[in-house]
Amino acid sequence: MKKFKLLRSVIAVLSVFALVFSLVACAQSKVEEPQTEAPPAGDTAPAPDPVELQIFAANSLEKALPEVQALYTQAHPEVTFAATQFKASGDLVEQIGAGATADLLITASKGSMDTAVEGGSIDDTTRIDMFANDLVIVKAKGADITVGSLEDVKSDAFSKIAIGDAATVPAGQYANQALNSIGLYSSDTGKDGEYDAAIAGKVVLADKVGTAANYVATGDCQIGFVYTSDIYRYDGIETAFTVPADAHKAILYPGAVLKASANADVANDFLNFCLTDPGAQSIWSQYGFEVL
């Protein structure tokens, strides 16, 4: 009886390990599938070495940039893109500081790019302002909400206001600058300040601008501060009020190649492609980014 018990447990342990290893092997073969398919496509081109670019881009570019990347790969089959990281600009700069490798960085504010430059990871000569954007207050599609002016955010009609966390989200900083212009935020940089008591209890901080847009789309917040371009990438939100451009700093998206990039030339070429290719221009236009 005891012997059988032991035999059974030994078999159990062995079978568990066998299962685990087969799963690992299976998973690895599954994951490698796309990679083994990729080379033939590249081989048809004369000779250029395949290049994979890793881009870190502001969250607001999440829908538009992949389309431009696909356009670039069409024109240059040897260049593919690793899964692009779309996070709050501040998070991306932190991530690069922590040692993540990337070829190209596009942020949604001068300030976040400046921080990356100070961190020493950016090739400053490649830095260029790529896009301009606008700040809007959005509401859920069809919601019975009117925002006639910036002051209206104090209205009792709104119990939750979605704003990007200014520590990392540039859209949050621009929103706070606008709020500062009417005395609802204590710091004119839009960072490190406090919300006025009139709205302090209502502000819901989002970890990236897309999250703020989603909070409004799902109805968890009545209004939120996002970019105009976010309206075109999220279903379920619409403009309630366009924040006057003079209420905040100019919304600019600087892009730059990283010093550590092994494919700096290709990265720079892609940066240039984004700004000059007519096909790319059409995509930016549709998603509401003004190419500079």
């Binding site: 105009t228 059409s282 236009s285 998603y287 509401g288 003004e290 190419v291 500079l292």
Partner: peptide, 10 residues
Amino acid sequence: FSRLNKGTNK
């Protein structure tokens, strides 16, 4: 068809 929400001054 496409809807161009922004243009460029470039």
